[in-house]
């Protein structure tokens, strides 16, 4: 039940998938909104703090997800999936993982250039490595911004593809992602 089989997703993969999906969109919305907060907004300090905290937790969840993927590989694609669909979805999913990785790294590099650690809520701190290259916060900031937009665009594409399978192809692709068996 917990583990994936060759034909369906177990609970762990399903929960991890949707947890990451909600978190990624939440972090994007928070990031989009918080960069324009005025200095006197009550969220001016809280929003970035929560954004960073959640981002670090997301990184940990992604590591667990990769570990789980290795322990319990995902099911095979449905037999009705065409070859180009399999290839495209594999590339998109790979890019989604890569995008999250890049966002975590670039976000970390923005905040830690001055050697200050990142406080994850008030639970623990991630130590800083300081400045690793010149102009670090600015470059990392641009990377963070562009990758965030790209990731959201890809995630929307990923979601639309799932809806296409559900409503147009009328296959089990999306239902499977909720743990349903074929």
């Amino acid at each position: 039940m917990l583990k994936n089989s060759s034909s369906h997703y177990g609970v762990v993969s399903v929960v991890l998938h949707w947890l990451v999906a909600v978190t990624v969109f939440g972090l994007f919305a928070a990031g989009f909104w918080m960069v324009d907060l005025s200095y006197y907004s009550e969220w001016y300090r809280t929003a970035p703090h929560w954004h960073k905290s959640t981002g670090i937790l997301l990184a940990i969840v992604m590591l667990l997800r990769l570990l789980w993927r290795w322990l319990s590989p995902p099911p095979q694609a449905l037999a009705t999936h065409r070859s180009w669909e399999k290839k495209t979805s594999a590339v998109v999913q790979c890019c989604l993982y890569l995008g999250i990785l890049l966002l975590v790294i670039s976000g970390y590099l923005i905040s830690t250039e001055d050697g200050r650690p990142i406080a994850v809520f008030d639970w623990f701190e991630v130590p800083a490595l300081g400045a690793l290259f010149t102009n670090q916060a600015d470059i990392a900031g641009l990377v963070h911004e562009y990758v965030a937009y790209s990731l959201i665009a890809l995630a929307v594409l990923h979601g639309m593809a799932a809806l296409k399978h559900h409503y147009i192809d009328k296959d089990h692709t999306l239902k499977r992602m909720f743990g349903r068996k074929p």
Binding site: I110, T112, D114, A137
Partner: peptide, 10 residues
């Protein structure tokens, strides 16, 4: 003396 503030100042 604060990376994020300096980024904002720039």
């Amino acid at each position: 003396n604060h990376a994020e503030r300096d980024k904002h100042l720039r």
